[in-house]
């Protein structure tokens, strides 16, 4: 590209499709006979985006294609209005990337390396040093920035990785498993930082993770990939009417209770499978009439209601709907 100074404000082409920052059409990536991504069609808006899927689902491959680092086998991908592969340089000028793997030079100070990465993104030397100091302060490494990285804890290294990803003030930042290897407090504080990047710094964040809880806590939009297939792409939560549920625990026979509900025309009632504890009945789309019916049936059958919990549709529900219960691996609940 020419030496022209880039547009400093938007820094991106006007995008279509409801201001989508990422758009893919029939995106496919094969490694030999293995299909890592299969005909992915996406249109992702600005915001905090969760890229969810089990290990090996194709998340990192998708990020590498969006960064212009890997060539799709077929289909196309646009990031901030630029073709991700043929205009990879323009894309990488405007996005940040925090890889999952260890990638920091041990024999450099945080200030030196992050400043160098800012220069590598096109910032003049003086501005790069200043930005490095500012951003390291923002990620909580103010005092430690002149120490060699090899003396840092895992959490501090993750912060340096995050700092280098945002030092050039990108419009969009890809974070690949930013909580990997962190203990619970470290994970908590990393998620807070990620949340700040989106809410305070105004950058669109794509958070790739296999942990439901991380995505649910930070993101307002989720893309679920499973075995290279796009399983779901939609906002998390939705309207209460759309996703609300009523969960009832009773100390009695759930089948009889559900039959009575069905008899009153409340068809969305079912028993939730539970390995232990009291039976649980879930009723979708609860209205005032449902609450009244539950009360009346409990009185009629003389069954104590132990708990009643109303909740909106969770990410877990979305995941189950998209991928199925068998894929809801135990590690997706964030065990560290």
């Amino acid at each position: 590209m020419s030496q022209a100074v880039l547009d400093q404000t938007a820094g991106a082409r006007a995008t279509t499709h409801e201001d989508a920052v990422i758009r893919t059409v029939d995106l496919t990536k094969r490694f030999g006979s293995f299909t890592a991504l299969n005909q992915i069609d996406l249109s992702i808006p600005r915001g905090a985006i969760g890229l969810l899927g089990p290990n090996g689902a194709g998340k990192t491959t998708l990020i590498r294609i969006l960064l212009g680092l890997a060539k799709p086998t077929s289909g196309s991908a646009e990031v901030l209005g630029f073709n991700a592969f043929s205009e990879g340089i323009q894309v990488r000028e405007r996005v940040g990337y925090m890889p999952e793997a260890e990638c920091l030079p041990s024999n450099a100070t945080a200030a030196d390396f992050v400043g160098h990465m800012a220069e590598m993104s096109g910032l003049p030397k003086t501005e790069a040093r200043q930005r490095a100091a500012d951003v390291l302060y923002q990620v909580g490494l103010d005092e430690e920035r002149y120490r060699l990285i090899k003396g840092f804890s895992t959490g501090m290294k993750q912060r340096v990785k995050l700092a280098q990803a945002i030092v050039h003030d990108p419009s969009l930042v890809f974070l690949d498993e930013p909580t990997a290897g962190l203990d619970p407090p470290g994970r908590d504080s990393m998620l807070e930082l990620v949340d700040r990047i989106y809410r305070m710094m105004g950058m669109t964040v794509v958070l790739s993770s296999h942990i439901l809880e991380d995505i649910e806590r930070v993101c307002d939009y989720v893309v679920i990939i499973d075995s290279g297939q796009l399983a779901l792409a939609q906002r998390i939560g939705g309207t209460p009417a759309e996703g609300a549920q009523l969960s009832i625990q009773i100390d009695g026979n759930p089948d009889q209770f559900i039959q009575r509900l069905h008899a009153l025309g409340i068809d969305d009632a079912r028993q939730r499978d539970r390995m232990t504890g009291l039976p649980e009945i879930v009723i979708r789309h609860p209205s005032d009439r449902v609450y009244d019916a539950v009360r009346d049936i409990a009185v009629e059958l003389d069954v104590p209601i132990v708990s009643m919990t109303g909740r909106t549709r969770s990410l877990e529900d979305l995941y189950l709907q998209a991928v199925g219960a068998s894929a809801l691996d135990a590690d997706m609940y964030g065990g560290v």
Partner: peptide, 19 residues
């Protein structure tokens, strides 16, 4: 608080020199 960067971005040639 967080300050957005509003200075120049010098592109690929600058990155090459920096490296």
């Amino acid at each position: 608080g967080y300050q957005h960067y509003t200075g120049p971005r010098l592109g690929r040639a600058h990155a090459f020199r920096a490296l």
